[in-house]
C-alpha cells in the first residue's frame, strides 16, 4: 500500500514540478488573498492582527480548494484510475498517494501564507510549537477531506461548482478549530489550545479512516 502511495504521490508531484502551476499560479493567488483581506479590513493593524488567524485559515481553505481541483485536473480522463486498480494497486494506496501530494503542496502554500501573515499583518508568534502542530493536524484533515470529495466530484457534470459546495461545509470544523488554535499560538486569545488540537486531530483521524474505508467503494472497487 505504501509503495503504491509513494508512486502516486511522486507522479502528482512530478507533474507539479514540471508544470509549475502551483508555484506560478496558486502561490501568487494565496498572496493575493492576503492583500484582498488587507483591503477589506485594513490598512490599520488594529483589525488585521486579531483577524490574522482566521484569515490564515480562510486562505488555506480556499488554497486547498484550488490545490485539490488541480490534483484532479491532472487525471484528465474519467476512470483514469481504473487501469491502476486493474494493475493491482491498492485503493488506500491511491488515496494516501493523492493525499500526500496535496498535503505537500498545501504545506508549501501555508508557509507562504504564514510568512505573509507575519510580515504583512504584523502578527507575532507566541508559541511556535502549537502553531506548527495545529497547522499540521488541520492540514492533514483538509487534505484528506479534499481528496475524498475531489474523487467524489470527479467525472460529474458541474464538478467545478459541486466540489466547493461539498467540501467547504464539511471542512468548516478545521476553520473553527484551526483559527482558535492559532489565536492561542499568536497570543491574541487567552485560553487552552488543548480542545482545539484534539478536535483537529480527531477530524484528521476521522477522515483518514473514512478515506481508507470509502475510497475503494467510491471508485467502485470493493
Amino acid at each position: 500500500m505504501w509503495r503504491d502511495a509513494a508512486l502516486i504521490a511522486a507522479k502528482d508531484l512530478r507533474i507539479e514540478l514540471r508544470s509549475r502551476v502551483l508555484l506560478n499560479q496558486l502561490a501568487p493567488m494565496a498572496m493575493l488573498m492576503l492583500v484582498l483581506f488587507a483591503f477589506a479590513l485594513g490598512p490599520g493593524r488594529g483589525a488585521l492582527v486579531p483577524a490574522a488567524p482566521g484569515l490564515f485559515w480562510t486562505g488555506t481553505l480556499f488554497s486547498a480548494l484550488l490545490a485539490v481541483q488541480r490534483s484532479w485536473a491532472v487525471e484528465p480522463v474519467e476512470g483514469a484510475h481504473d487501469p491502476l486498480h486493474l494493475a493491482g494497486m491498492d485503493s488506500s494506496g491511491i488515496f494516501f498517494g493523492k493525499l500526500a501530494a496535496v498535503l505537500a503542496e498545501l504545506l508549501t502554500l501555508e508557509v507562504l501564507l504564514g510568512i505573509g501573515v507575519v510580515v504583512l499583518f504584523g502578527a507575532r508568534v507566541a508559541s511556535p510549537a502549537e502553531l506548527l502542530l495545529s497547522t499540521l493536524a488541520g492540514t492533514v484533515g483538509l487534505a484528506a477531506v479534499g481528496v475524498l470529495y475531489g474523487a467524489l466530484a470527479s467525472g460529474m457534470h458541474t464538478k467545478e461548482t459541486l466540489f466547493p459546495l461539498l467540501f467547504l461545509p464539511v471542512a468548516s470544523p478545521v476553520l473553527v478549530a484551526g483559527t482558535r488554535a492559532w489565536q492561542v499560538a499568536l497570543g491574541t486569545a487567552h485560553m487552552g489550545a488543548g480542545p482545539w488540537m484534539t478536535l483537529l486531530v480527531v477530524f484528521a483521524a476521522l477522515y483518514l479512516s473514512a478515506g481508507v474505508l470509502l475510497y475503494g467503494p467510491l471508485e467502485g472497487t470493493e
Binding site: 475524498l148 470529495y149 467524489l152 464539511v170 468548516s172 470544523p173 473553527v176 480527531v202 476521522l206 477522515y207
Partner: peptide
C-alpha cells in the same frame, strides 16, 4: 451514498466545534 456518509461522520465534529 458516500456523500451522505462523509457528511454524517462530520456531524459530531461540527457539533463539538460549534
Amino acid at each position: 451514498a458516500v456523500t451522505c456518509l462523509l457528511a454524517f461522520i462530520d456531524v459530531p465534529v461540527v457539533h463539538f466545534s460549534v
